[in-house]
Amino acid sequence: MHNFDFVKPSSVAEAVAALANEDALPLSGGQTLIPSMKARLNAPETLVSLTGIDELKGVCVDGGSLVIGAATTHATVAAEAASHFPGLAALAGQIGDPAVRNRGTLGGSLANNDPSACYPAAALGTGATVVTNTREIAADDYFQGMFTTALEEGEIITSVRFPIAEKSAYAKFLQPASRFALTGVFVAKYASGVRVAVTGASENGVFRWAEAEAALSQDFSADAIADLKCSPDEMISDLHGTPEYRAHLVGVMTRRAVAAAR
């Protein structure tokens, strides 16, 4: 790995100032960035650690939403969100393995927007708001295709507001070698309707399955979507599955998530 200057500020303002240097990158849990730096896919001149910034950490209820700091680890969300938002906590508890969950963070996951990552499904499936150092971005505008987001250079996620669902669940079909989702579906039921977000399937990254949302908003039961099929167009094709297989899994995982929702 190329060497770099390491800085560890204790406030968001200092971090943003350090990131003004164009070859600087933020480091959160490092569970994605460190492997990619080893592979020389990234070679920042300055790495700005966010792990020493207390204002970026924590889980709290604010009105009808659960607000989670960007540098909060998956393990902390799994433990601390469990009583407020069990579907979201269970998703965090299924990411990777215990050691990955002890370092990896919400902000890192959403900034990276891996097409098979779990958190993007929760953010889009709850209609979350991504809060950065400069603005608030609705999840519907935030995800812009595989590894692509609305974030500008030097902009950091500070927290995410997840509207708490009446019922929700994440159904993940595990790709056991990578531990990511081969296909995963987050389903959330609100007074205003049902949202269904799919990860691991599309070449365009996480997406909402509109037909399932419409059917489930009428009748929130697995039977309501028993015959509904998701199109395999633009789905990922790799050695783990064909587009048709992934499209089939979208239906299966959506029905499992609805049946498991609490």
Binding site: L27, G30, Q31, P35, S49, T51, A75, A99, N102
Partner: peptide
């Protein structure tokens, strides 16, 4: 173990 928690030591910088 880092502060009691399991961590992959190949995936954390000492300086952090």
């Amino acid at each position: 173990l880092v502060d009691g928690k399991a961590v992959k030591s190949c995936t954390a910088f000492a300086a952090d």
